[in-house]
Design a protein around this nucleic acid. Sequence first.
DNA 1: AAGATGTTCAACCGCGGGCCC
DNA 2: TGGGCCCGCGGTTGAACATCT
Length: 307
Amino acid sequence: MSISTKRELGSNEEESELRRGPWTLEEDSLLIHYITCHGEGRWNMLAKSAGLKRSGKSCRLRWLNYLKPDIKRGNLSPQEQLLILELHSKWGNRWSKIAQHLPGRTDNEIKNYWRTRVQKQARQLNIESGSKRFIDAVKCFWMPRLLQKMEQDSFLSSYSSMTNMNFGNSAEASTSSMSNTSNFPYLPSSTPPQELFIDAANANNLSTMSSHTNAFSNLDSLQFSQLLEISEQPTCPPNVFENNVYNNPIQDNWFVDTNNYGMQGLNMDPLQVMESYDIPQFAFQAEGNDEWMLDNMGDTLWNMNTM
DNA sequence: AAGATGTTCAACCGCGGGCCC
DNA sequence: TGGGCCCGCGGTTGAACATCT
């Protein structure tokens, strides 16, 4: 044990008195009550004053990662995941910095997400998680899928709204939403759901529709501007996908989740999807270093289940 | 049904940096 | 200036839970 740790723990006697492991309800309420009355900070003193047999560090961690009122619970939304991928590509493992841009999410949660989901994908693809190739794969496959998921979620909610309001044909609306090209490399046309709303609004009541949300409704302006920065990045780096285009045997199922994980209700032509996302129909190399792509990309990896 | 294996995430650890005396 | 103390970060662990065989 380091000198600094000994310093922080105090004497061996004190160290042995300190509780470790999972927090009890009683400890939680003691901590919450104390912080509510006296505020946070000075964690070692706080721990003693609150009557907790915990280190200051442990109290701080429990409060910041679990008890603090504005902590968000539940799965990360596709928007949040996308932001994490983007910010990580910028800053690397600066979890706390990344967490600052995801209100209600902790650095610990983001770190766990990265290690358990993202790195798992890297392992399965047999590529190093920090490598250029992995970053490329994230940008070319994972991000588009997240955006697709966002779009799907938005479509489903709008479909549901319209069904409730007896609006028109959802299939038509869906098709029209996918039809335009976009300046946003990973986004189909102009945030399809909104367009979809406008179509419906033309036929019905614009003011009613304007109150609806679109795919990015959960993003604040900062997050959205960060998302837009993605659009300034090149679509797919040439070093991942070589230029020798040929008829790709897995093209029929790449980009489309063959197991339909998380894609219920979405029945799109993969080529149309690629076009709509403005992603080049990059070639797949049959031999050499990029075999991993053939082996894995069309398979169940990178599916929406793991996002 | 039960044991084995995999996954998730709360919690811990070590370290570096900042502040204060 | 240097030592003591505290805070916060990133890496790691392990218990609980889920899934597989």
